[in-house]
Design a protein around this nucleic acid. Structure first.
Lengths: 213, 213
DNA sequence: GCGACAATGTGATAACTGTCACAGCCTAAC
DNA sequence: GTTAGGCTGTGACAGTTATCACATTGTCGC
């Protein structure tokens, strides 16, 4: 893979995720080769857009033929970096936290969840899922440092989110994925993504309201 | 509210959601008035961006002063249409579905969850949360039609998502929020949003990988 | 009432992102 | 070997979104 010097649109990354997801579900045996036309059809993206997205990172196809399905999947995985195995923790073992703990695609996307934290004394010490034991939130710093955890996923209520983020940061975390509907603040050096389920709801509400008017 | 004829960027809607969220948490008593500067600081958006976003919909501030906090919150809620009370259903009562059933912000964002569906015989007939009883997936069509449900939230595994979407559509659903990591296909007339948690993970993985290189 | 000040609203401009058309390259058939 | 056909890769163009600068309009003190 040769990353070109250009800046890559975030939308491109999002689409690459869609592509690789689809390719993963596709039987590579029955579809050894795929064209941007077909892939676009399935992912609801124009063929030109797909070719452009891929062209940011190199040339993966064969003119007149298409893309080798298996190879393309591997290339995109490499681009996205989901072949890694980031030591990950989930903070906040409510329903959402549990949902994420049980999603097996974490493993398939380069994350290995090794610890979980919660503030509820009744939960601490119990097993959350897959052999992961729930620890006290007050131990975050120490644990992150000792276990060299590089990703923290925040699924706490809004009130606790910033404090948790601070603890993760001072423990030496690398990246944070925040599901609490508030924009947490972290130093420049920390990679941060805020996932706002709330805003998805609001967006749907907006679209529906528009339709009615 | 006077919607101008211009097309509104989706990013603007997303930010409006952020603003209204922040305003809701802000004590309006201690902060009767807020400037785009301060609001921007809190939401990590430039002041000019905020003013531009709002200007698509009208003039809500007072020059030299700022925005009336309470009034601005109400105006944005009105713009987004989260003062409605859409009859909503959740299909797929796994951990994620349960998480959503228990989030009280659904109510605060214009959605009223009145039914839930699952395919697991052991779950059918039991109460999911807040007095919502779980029904069989085979009853979706009938129930959506009879209860005049307008929003469907899909939290099933990938394999079931498209089939569920089809059933919701033929029952006469209005909008769909899909959490399954696949782009479901619906007729043009249905308002659809695909929420991809997977792509958020992939995006984080990408950013972290970039940092390392 | 008037001047100094403060923060909005917006046209102009810049940056970014997506679309399009076609040149370039590969395969396959004859 | 040559030609026809097909699909990628990409530069040029168009459309969209964000930034900037400042004119505008309101407040407050005297």
């Amino acid at each position: 893979m040769k990353t070109k010097e250009h800046k890559i649109p975030e939308a491109t990354i999002k689409r690459l995720s869609t592509y690789v997801n689809y390719l993963g579900r596709l039987g590579t045996d029955s579809n050894p080769v795929i064209s941007s036309e077909i892939l676009g059809e399935s992912c609801q993206v124009s063929p030109a857009q797909i070719r452009k997205d891929l062209s940011y990172f190199g040339e993966f196809g064969v003119r007149g033929v298409g893309y080798d399905t298996k190879k393309l999947e591997a290339e995109i995985k490499d681009i996205l970096g989901i072949n890694h195995n980031w030591p990950t923790t989930i903070v906040g073992v409510g329903k959402l936290g549990q949902a994420l703990l049980n999603f097996d695609f974490f493993r398939n996307h380069g994350f290995r969840i090794i610890t979980a934290f919660d503030s509820d004394p009744n939960k601490i010490g119990t097993e959350a899922a897959n052999g992961v034991t729930i620890q006290s939130i007050s131990d975050i710093e120490k644990c992150v440092r000792e276990e060299k955890i590089s990703i923290g996923i925040i699924t706490t209520p809004v009130a606790a989110a910033q404090e948790v983020a601070d603890k993760l940061v001072s423990g030496g975390i690398n990246g944070i994925l925040n599901f609490a509907p508030i924009k947490v603040r972290v130093p420049e050096t920390i990679t941060l993504r805020n996932v706002s389920i709330t805003s998805e709801l609001d967006n749907l509400a907006y679209l529906l309201t528009q339709k009615k008017r």
